[in-house]
């Protein structure tokens, strides 16, 4: 990846990530988050991780963002007034993020991480290579995951649907 491309994308993703946390209007935060995710997706694609890049766009920038938007609308969130979070939360939050930065820094300074390529085949990161792994080595895990998701959906519906006794009382209160 060219250096100018990396710097360009890095600046975009960092600035928009800052935008997510400093803006007051939740919808503006969300739009900044979409920009962050798009910049990261291009970074992934530039690193030959094509599938991960596109999944990032389809799943995160697409589906999950729409979900967030729905939540914001459903809860009717307004622009925040005043600072949120207790002092202790901010204190420990600062410590935790400082620890994370220190950890990343110490890992990045390790010499073994400066290896450029790990001898993967030319198809590394493509959809074909990924699906071949999924349907051979990880077949059981793949199938089991689909069952897991089905169980989660059934569970969510079972808990969210109206209980038999509540049929009449709750109908009026729903929007």
């Amino acid at each position: 990846m060219a250096l100018w491309l990396f710097v360009f994308l890095a600046v975009i993703s960092l600035v928009s990530a800052l935008g997510v946390i400093v803006q007051r209007n939740p919808v503006h935060c969300l739009l900044a988050l979409v920009l962050t995710i798009l910049a990261l997706a291009v970074l992934f694609i530039a690193l030959d991780a094509t599938v991960v890049g596109f999944l990032q766009i389809i799943v995160y920038a697409g589906a999950i963002m729409v979900l967030f938007l729905f939540v914001i609308w459903l809860l009717n969130l307004q622009a925040e007034t005043g600072p949120t979070g207790s002092l202790a939360l901010k204190f420990f939050g600062t410590i935790a993020s400082a620890a994370l930065v220190a950890e990343l820094w110490s890992f990045l300074l390790r010499p073994h991480l400066k290896v450029k390529y790990v001898g993967e085949s030319a198809s590394y990161g493509t959809l074909g290579a990924l699906s071949q792994k999924l349907f051979t080595d990880y077949l059981i895990a793949f199938e089991a995951t689909s069952i897991l998701l089905l169980a989660a959906i059934v569970g969510a519906v079972a808990l969210a649907r109206r209980a038999p006794g509540q049929r009449d009382s709750r109908q009026g209160s729903l929007p």
């Binding site: 059981i140 895990a141 089991a144 995951t145 897991l148 169980a151 569970g155 969510a156 079972a158 808990l159």
Partner: peptide
């Protein structure tokens, strides 16, 4: 990985069953 997925499938279903 399969142990983890099995554990999650089991747990998710039981979480819901506990609240039925």
């Amino acid at each position: 990985i399969v142990i983890f997925i099995g554990l999650e499938t089991m747990s998710l279903a039981v979480y819901v069953l506990a609240g039925l």
